[in-house]
Write a protein that binds this DNA or RNA. Structure first.
Lengths: 199, 199
DNA sequence: TCGCAATGTTGACACCGTCAAGATAAGTTT
DNA sequence: AAACTTATCTTGACGGTGTCAACATTGCGA
């Protein structure tokens, strides 16, 4: 009964994000409500509104955390000393693994809820831009090493390549046209598609 | 004042679908409520429930209509007498054009709301399967004519190819990492990616 | 120590999906 | 034509949602 019931919570912002994160992981983002979240954290309905402007802002914060996580993961990979081709292969596998293991976060990061139905926070936009830039930079290197096609700008190739991965992730996550056991084979085929050399 | 206010509506099912369709087209699917829909159609809150089990069922019906529309559109294209390679190119353009012009329906057809958060109706599943099968059959032909890569089954190539298109559509529709004026260039690049011949 | 800003609370409002019970109309059987 | 059944539509109600306004408590800097 050390900290059973003080008026001020301590670090509510962090608690909210943590609980929200595990709630959406378990029950999906559409069943997350501000009221339930507040209840789980042990605080009144409207307390969260002193830490996040509204629900959209909280979701944006979750997505932003996701971008940092994902970028950290991928940067970690790039530090390994492997042939670049193998590195790219692993990158693709890792990308889909992340989407799989953090599916709800992935949905927030790249999904409609924030980007179309809602309004992305400035700092979320910044984080996503940062991630995109890192990606494009790497694409440039991959083009130079003749792993990705060089018949267009790094931007274009980066866009189409990422779009392909994203489409795969979405079909898998939404469970349409893709059985779980198919995924591994699909990823391998996708890599072949993406890397197939032009001539 | 011919049909101003009779107790029975006439063809409420159709009216609901039509109004719902135009409502989501204008204001997005997340702002569609059964109550507002009923109000627009000029009927009481719960009348729609005599025609659709619940909101999910109504959305499924909209998605199903979308599948028929899309398939009709594509079948129409396939009847043209063009070199197969050009036909495929047009197919891709048409696919993205459909996604663009019926973005809300496209979201329902392939999105999370029905397939993950909700429960797809049996007849919706049937319609989507049908569409998928038609696609795979055509992929087989494209492989034989050496337009799509033949280094894997029609199923796999069909899955990855579609996933790529789908990813492009989603990035575009959700407005992340893709400016509108980039789309055309991206589609062309994507076609090159998909068609690039293996050797 | 005082006062203010940060953080928490309860109350209220306008929405939402949808169930239950009753009213009305159309269709079917006698 | 009358009676019964079924499809359709209505109002009332319940529990859930996001979030605004007003008020209470606390911690911190002057």
């Amino acid at each position: 009964m050390t900290n059973s019931k003080k008026y001020h919570h301590g670090d509510l912002t962090k608690s909210l994000l943590d609980s929200a994160s595990s709630l959406i992981k378990e029950h999906g983002v559409e069943s997350l409500s501000m009221r339930k979240l507040a209840d789980v954290v042990g605080v009144s309905r409207t307390a969260p509104y002193h830490h996040f402007k509204d629900k959209n802002a909280l979701l944006c914060a979750l997505a932003e955390k996701g971008f940092y996580e994902q970028e950290e993961l991928l940067c970690q990979l790039l530090k390994q000393t492997l042939p670049t081709a193998d590195l790219f292969k692993q990158y693709v596998h890792l990308y889909l693994e992340y989407a799989q293991q953090h599916s709800e976060t992935y949905d927030l990061m790249y999904g409609r809820v924030i980007w179309k139905a809602g309004t992305p926070t400035d700092s979320l936009v910044a984080a996503s831009r940062q991630t995109f830039k890192t990606w494009i930079d790497w694409v440039e290197k991959l083009q130079q090493e003749n792993i990705l096609p060089a018949d267009n700008s790094a931007l274009r190739i980066g866009q189409t390549t990422w779009a392909s991965l994203h489409g795969l992730a979405r079909f898998y996550l939404d469970g349409i046209y893709l059985d779980k056991e198919d995924l591994s084979g699909m990823v391998d085929q996708m890599i072949k598609n993406l890397c197939r050399s032009p001539h």
